[in-house]
């Protein structure tokens, strides 16, 4: 696939574009920011290239947004581009988190701050619940999927079954149940 347009940027320019997203993306939804910047604004990738990167990013472990940054950075400027993209995306938020962490450490015993933080923490639980219900809507409505949703939830939340056990014992069962339909018998 030919590159989508403009000539390839250097690592500094890549860092600048990703850092802008890293600074402004309050409240999440990073993939949409990435699409806007890479496809619509900078035209560094076309739509198909972006979707292919997203597909890889979603399939492999790691955060989708960071994985897309790695792939896009690599395509634009090799290893330097990948490092520039990922660090640009991650570091501004870390700097702000550090500041929030310092404030938290200093003021967490103040009853006003503690009350506000309890409200923020509760709101974050509500946000995660909403995201889970929204992206899981299809799975909740399918009986077999629902069994795996609830089974995984039950094992992990109440029996502290560890993540490696879930991924290496439960996941293969789920994957085999979803195996490609035109299977040919081994023989």
């Amino acid at each position: 696939m030919p590159p989508a347009g403009n000539e390839k940027p250097n690592a500094r320019e890549i860092f600048r574009v990703f850092a802008k997203i890293g600074i402004t993306s309050f409240g999440g939804g990073l993939v949409a920011y990435l699409r806007d910047a890479l496809v619509s604004d900078k035209k560094w990738m076309n739509e198909e290239e972006f979707l292919a990167a997203l597909e890889i990013g979603q399939t492999l472990p790691g955060l989708n947004s960071v994985n897309v940054a790695i792939i896009a950075g690599r395509k634009l400027a090799g290893p330097h581009g990948a490092v520039a993209a990922a660090s640009g995306l991650i570091l501004p938020g870390v700097a702000l988190l550090l500041l929030l962490g310092l404030l938290y450490d200093r003021f967490r015993h103040n009853p006003n701050v503690a009350a506000a933080l309890a409200g923020v923490a509760a709101a974050a639980v509500g946000l995660l619940l909403q995201v889970t219900l929204k992206i899981g809507a299809k799975q909740f409505l399918n009986l077999r999927d629902l069994c795996f949703v609830l089974g995984t939830f039950y094992l992990v939340a109440f029996h502290h079954v560890s993540l490696p056990v879930v991924l290496f014992l439960v996941a293969p069962i789920a994957i085999i149940l979803c195996r490609p339909t035109p299977t040919k018998p081994d023989a």
Partner: peptide, 8 residues
């Protein structure tokens, strides 16, 4: 929750 509020 702080992580959810911060950008990035």
């Amino acid at each position: 929750s702080l992580g959810q509020m911060a950008p990035g």
